[in-house]
Amino acid sequence: MMNEIFSSTPFILLLVLGSYLAGCKLHQKKHIALFHPLLVAMILIIGLLTLLDIDYDTFCAGSSFISFLLGPSVVALGYALYEQIEQIRGKEIPVLTAVFAGGIVGIVSVIAICRVMGVDEAITSSLQPKSVTIPIAISLSEHSHGIPSLTAVIVFGCGLLGGIIGPAVLDRCHVNSRVARGLALGSAAHGLGTARAIELGAVEGAISGLAIGLMGVVTSLLIPVFENLMR
């Protein structure tokens, strides 16, 4: 009987929401980037699924309601982008050129390294959107037949790395302008870069938030181009 309960949609939704909430609480208490709600929820859910012997397909069916909301939330990012675009009035050309250059370098370097090291096409597709915010990255990965869960983890890892070493790298390269620093952090490390950029200052934080959306758009437009060019 318990098995029937554990496989039911309400139980699985409770499991996802509860684990995520636990992750949020832990993140609020301890401000460590590694205790991100996503990572905590992942560990809790995988542990509980194994413990309660719920199979992956049952979990997918039960949580499809939550997964569906990923699409609308990507659409909603259009509003966030609209709100933030004001920040770069008068600096449109340098900002857009920089994000565009970053997008090209990001995708080309992923494809080149994957080629040289000889990995599966599916892995290359999963890594291409690695500088983009996770919801967009998952959509892009799914779209080019990558492995969405692998994308989520790598994108998270890159964000963590970019947020930690980003400011030091920018110091090394003598990038001092606040706009350039915020833009670089948001473009390379999405939300986790923005969290760090906010610590640096309000300008850095705001520009970094905008960079997340811009990098998402630019990468989405560039991936099909390079997929056709480099195949």
């Binding site: 996802v16 929401l17 684990s19 995520y20 991100h36 709600p37 996503l38 929820a41 992942m42 859910i45 995988i46 699924l49 992956y56 979990f59 997918c60 949580s63 499809s64 939550i66 997964s67 909301l69 990923l70 609308p72 939330s73 909603a76 990012l77 509003y79 966030a80 915010t133 996770i134 919801p135 998952i138 492995i147 969405p148 869960s149 692998l150 989520a152 983890v153």
Partner: peptide
């Protein structure tokens, strides 16, 4: 939708 976006990609990451 955007404030709690991380929640929506929890199920996709469980595929790991």
């Amino acid at each position: 939708l955007t404030r709690n976006m991380a929640l929506f990609f929890v199920p996709a990451s469980i595929g790991l």
